[in-house]
Design a binder for these strands. Structure first.
Lengths: 261, 261
DNA sequence: TTAGCATCTTTATCTATGTTAATCATGCAT
DNA sequence: ATGCATGATTAACATAGATAAAGATGCTAA
């Protein structure tokens, strides 16, 4: 899982699986090989696949950010998930007749596509790989549930804080955090459509988090200065990510700075 | 799939799978047989499994209603899904180390439990059954996404209306709707914790739907008098349920009563 | 029959967040 | 450098839905 000459994005994909389950080197190679067979470049802010389409392949984000979204007939749009490097968009879609949601690139995206046949063969060849991919699906659903919980019960500040915690933890798991800093190519509008808030209110909330010295967020770069405070504000409990290694950012219980003012 | 002497609840379970995929009679029997091996009775309003537990079996609701929920450390509770007769709680949980959510009975529940081994054997014996179960998982996730969309973008009336549409359609698919009427054992508090609203506001919204002659909801019984109007109010598009047969209740496009006042 | 408890209903008040709109900053393309 | 588009910020105002409290209804049990 170290030498990846002509498939730079593959590194994140393997990293991602390894963050969930231990895999032998041969499993990783099998995966990378399947991934490298069909690679596509997607322009930023364009659809990768759209509601109503016929699902044709399993897609893996090799580089860049994408999102899953769905919209109401009158145009209201909800982002349902973010995809960061290494993330699988949907590993069993081809069982469905038609897509019930859309996927769009946020930044320019490098995509690996695996055909249904290749996918089936790959999982037949390695049970470990198949299990890791299944586990990944479970985590994807767990994240969806956590978002449902947040939208239903958390207030604006808690929602935004939680999103930042989650993304930070996921990026850390694929080694995309350096000195507590990571690239975060989302506009405040994006954050709003993921958290069910207007961009104006997202802005207010971010100001507050900045004012309290908890985060810094400028020029698409996020720094979390007080991870424990952020995790506490968000009530972030990373169990649902089912990572083999706990993220540095804020496990809620036991609270490290529990008695701060 | 007709004779079910000592397993009355099994009927709904098979009905459910058949609503998603065609199955041979032998597949149905295989499923029912696995389901009947371990049956448990659960008291209304008690937990079936709780966050943090070790997942041990695949559970299928044979009779009664249950829900999946998650709560914040300060007690706020969000219902994440409703389980009606025939629904699988989670078909691959045993890949996880610990449950990240809880499941509770709403009414008295009859539960079928399938051990991981039995489940594996069953899916090995019938690819069709395995596919149907996988498809069911996909639909469960699709429903979770639709809830996320609703909580983020729909207002109170739309959310409640959408929930009623969804439940009605799902109950219809397992033949639990008679003359547009179905049993709906949810309190307004339940509806509130599923839609992220207070029970007070749920009450207001229900009054409005009643006032407009759209629904009737008394003594745990729901009647939808104007399915098209309800579907329109909810912007309900049943595609995400991936049913083989469209529900009677309200396909949004093309809108049947589109030009009503 | 009455008491007790859940749920539902209604009203009054309050607040978090939305809406609108204007201004400012930033980066990209010519 | 200039101009333009997109995003961030701020302010003034509007509202959907929360909160609180009290009464009405219906079911269960003694």
């Amino acid at each position: 899982m170290s030498d990846l000459p002509e498939n730079p994005g593959g590194h994140a994909a393997v990293h991602k699986l390894l963050s969930l389950a231990p895999l032998r080197e041969e499993d990783c190679h099998l995966y990378l090989e399947a991934l490298g067979r069909r690679v596509r470049q997607i322009t930023a802010r364009t659809d990768i696949t759209h509601e109503g389409d016929n699902p044709r392949a399993v897609r893996v984000v090799l580089e860049g950010w994408a999102c899953r979204y769905k919209e109401l007939p009158d145009g209201r749009r909800q982002i349902l998930a973010f995809f960061v490097p290494g993330d699988l968009c949907d590993s069993a879609v081809f069982l469905l007749d038609q897509m019930d949601h859309s996927i769009a690139a946020i930044t320019p995206v490098t995509l690996g596509e695996i055909t249904p046949d290749a996918f089936a063969q790959m999982t037949r060849e390695s049970t470990e790989l198949a299990d890791a991919l299944a586990l990944n699906e479970l985590v994807t659903v767990a994240i969806q549930r956590e978002w449902t919980l947040g939208l239903g019960q958390r207030n604006a500040l808690e929602r935004v804080a939680h999103l930042l915690c989650e993304l930070h933890a996921r990026l850390e798991a694929i080694d995309l955090v350096k000195d507590g800093q990571c690239h975060l190519p989302l506009t405040q509008i994006d954050i709003g459509s993921a958290t069910g808030l207007t961009s104006v209110h997202v802005n207010r909330v971010l100001q507050e988090l900045r004012r309290d010295g908890i985060i810094e967020l400028t020029r698409r770069r996020l720094t979390i200065h007080r991870p424990a405070a952020l995790g506490r504000a968000a009530m972030f409990d990373p169990v649902y990510l089912h990572l083999r290694q706990l993220p540095r950012v804020a496990a809620v219980r036991p609270a490290p700075e529990a008695f701060a003012p």
